[in-house]
Design a protein around this nucleic acid. Sequence first.
DNA 1: CAGTATCCTGTGTGATACTG
DNA 2: CAGTATCACACAGGATACTG
Lengths: 158, 158
Amino acid sequence: MVKRTRFNESDCPVARSVDAIGDWWSLLIVRDAFDGSRRFGEFQRSLGVAKNILASRLRDLVAGGILDMAPAADGSAYHEYVLTPKGRDLFPVIVALRQWGEGHFFDPGEPHSEMVDLRHGRPPRALEVHSADGRQLGPDDITVKKVERPAGAAAASE
Amino acid sequence: MVKRTRFNESDCPVARSVDAIGDWWSLLIVRDAFDGSRRFGEFQRSLGVAKNILASRLRDLVAGGILDMAPAADGSAYHEYVLTPKGRDLFPVIVALRQWGEGHFFDPGEPHSEMVDLRHGRPPRALEVHSADGRQLGPDDITVKKVERPAGAAAASE
DNA sequence: CAGTATCCTGTGTGATACTG
DNA sequence: CAGTATCACACAGGATACTG
């Protein structure tokens, strides 16, 4: 059980999301799951994380409804970890992080793992935020309406 | 200085991104920055985090080129923390996390802070991943090409 | 108000060893 | 291979006091 500062009481969806994800390891596990990893050993080799940490994170992700445990397809006694629909909904989050990383942390020409469209072998378009009527929105085109808090306000709110 | 497992050597942009962000506090600071927070005290009240932690994270974010320190607009001796272009590029990440949280962690009708288009007062559309030729892509429509690693492979890679 | 400095504690983390 | 159990340490995180 990951115990740290909790944000799950916050009225901000961003805070609840990060709380639900857990930590960076968990997010990288989800990334690997999108990339096709399913087995304990696959995650472990890919991440290079200690096995107890990995086991703990997998438990948390399953408990959080992000991963599901299924019997192994190869008939072995072990499990496979597959994304639930809720986990699959993290797709834009992973894509956004990937694109940000590609844009800012690799020298031109420096090789990096790349997400490509299966049909064309090309990377997806850069994510864009659009208004309800279809205009593209930037950070300055939005504001955040804070919720009315009835009585006692919790911290880590906004 | 945040010291933890580093992912900045990874060839995966997602890993480098999370490494650059630092931790959840940092991400929530960025969120607040998008929401208009600029001053130390604003972040502190919003997050409820200890001041030393906040100071440390702000330092890291400035050092990482995500925030910039500017002299305070009100003429006081202090600073304002504003997003750099690199920081502003995190917009889709925040929006993606926000939408994921809205969709999965609030009961129907439960109030939460809400991002709205300044022109219409309505939330943006759900983020969609599109292929180079404009088709919408889901998790099953992509694959991740691992990079050829010349010799010694680092952990936490793909 | 905007930080810095100091101290304390819990625990996340990684190694290692062990099991079926 | 797929985990669980145990251990030791660093350090994140929080509280508090102090400064300009």
